[in-house]
């Protein structure tokens, strides 16, 4: 007799009949057991600068071995990696065979300091991420999540035990927008942010600013105030520029002025480190020392030009700059 399963990994709680997949396309009911069809089968493997995730306060200037499988539990209409995230594994032209030891070996061979579970969302390749991260820890590597944070608390807390840093998307500070444009809800994401902070994961937040969807300054102000209150003023926030993609090709790229205004809102709310991304060459990519106001880290794009932080302190004034700079 075939039975349905309920996947408890993400808040969608998909009821999955035998032989079928959940909303993420890759978690399948096989003979009454839940299986991730993409385990050990990444479809993207790259060595990236850690700044690309983006993580600006975590091992700057180092390479991170970045892997992703197909599938995602969100369906953002503006997804920048939709060709990977909105497919199942069998639809991908390339699926590598790379079990956790092979991924860890690849990271070590290429001189990376960390492994990033990224591009689509590590939530849907949870077991692969967990097993690889545990092994990576044993070999002295750090682990990085790049995620939308749409995961239930239990599995997230378990995963946090082997994760060092995370860049989590806070896509909109509005539940309706989450439902309309990403097929998700706001509260589980906020909970995931708080949980990661509680579990000691170094956390940075990205907000992709999409014209007309989430560029309302009142919404941005509320989001920044929530961050200060619940995550602390030392949590870096990256406002990222949108480019027309996937189902939202009718919208223009985010005006630079909008991004700069959003950054001002973040700073006014009390956040100490607010960046503007996908906009190469601006001073808004630099880390300013909150004590003396000088640029402690200067960057262009994903490249670190000048590193003025030593042992977590500004070289100019000795003030503390939050982060995991060289652990």
């Amino acid at each position: 007799m075939s039975a349905s399963l309920i996947c408890e990994l993400c808040p969608k709680s998909c009821r999955i009949p035998e032989g079928e997949a959940g909303d993420c396309r890759v978690r399948v009911n096989v003979g009454g057991k839940l299986r991730a069809t993409t385990y050990g089968r990444p479809s993207a493997v790259h060595v990236d600068p850690i700044e690309k995730k983006p993580l600006f306060h975590f091992l700057p200037g180092t390479g991170t071995f970045s892997i992703a499988t197909a599938g995602c539990n969100l369906h953002c209409k503006f997804c920048q990696n939709w060709e990977l995230s909105q497919r199942d594994g069998t639809e991908m032209e390339v699926r590598y065979q790379a079990d956790p030891p092979k991924v860890v070996a690849g990271a070590l061979q290429t001189g990376c300091r960390s492994i990033a579970y990224t591009y689509s969302d590590p939530v849907v390749f949870y077991e692969y991420t967990f097993d690889t991260a545990r092994l990576a820890r044993e070999k002295g590597l750090k682990n990085v999540l790049v995620t939308a944070g749409y995961i239930t608390p239990g599995p997230l807390r378990r995963l946090c035990k082997v994760v060092d840093a995370s860049n989590t998307d806070l896509k909109y500070f509005d539940d309706g927008a989450y439902r309309r444009y990403s097929d998700a809800t706001l509260k589980p994401v906020l909970d995931a942010l708080v949980i990661q902070k509680e579990e000691g994961v170094w956390l940075e937040v990205t907000n992709l600013v999409v014209p007309t969807l989430n560029d309302d300054m009142e919404m941005i102000r509320k989001m920044c105030r929530w961050m200060v209150k619940h995550l602390g003023p030392d949590t870096p926030l990256h406002f990222s520029r949108f480019f027309p993609m996937y189902k939202l090709q009718n919208l223009p790229p985010t005006p630079v002025e909008t991004l700069l205004r959003a950054r001002e809102e973040g700073l006014a709310a009390g956040l100490r480190y607010v960046y503007v991304g996908n906009l190469h060459g601006g001073a808004e990519e630099n880390t300013r020392c909150p004590s003396c106001g000088k640029d402690a880290v200067r960057r262009v794009g994903f490249q670190v030009l000048e590193m003025g932080v030593r042992d977590g302190r500004c070289r100019s004034c000795g003030g503390k700059i939050a982060g995991r700079w060289g652990a």
Binding site: A44, V45, H46, V47, D48, K52, K53, F65, A68, Q80, N81, L84, Y96, G106, T110, T118, Y119, V146, N167
Partner: peptide, 10 residues
């Protein structure tokens, strides 16, 4: 394979 195209975000 580790040095593929740089087109993916994040």
């Amino acid at each position: 394979d580790f040095y593929g195209p740089d087109e993916l975000a994040g």
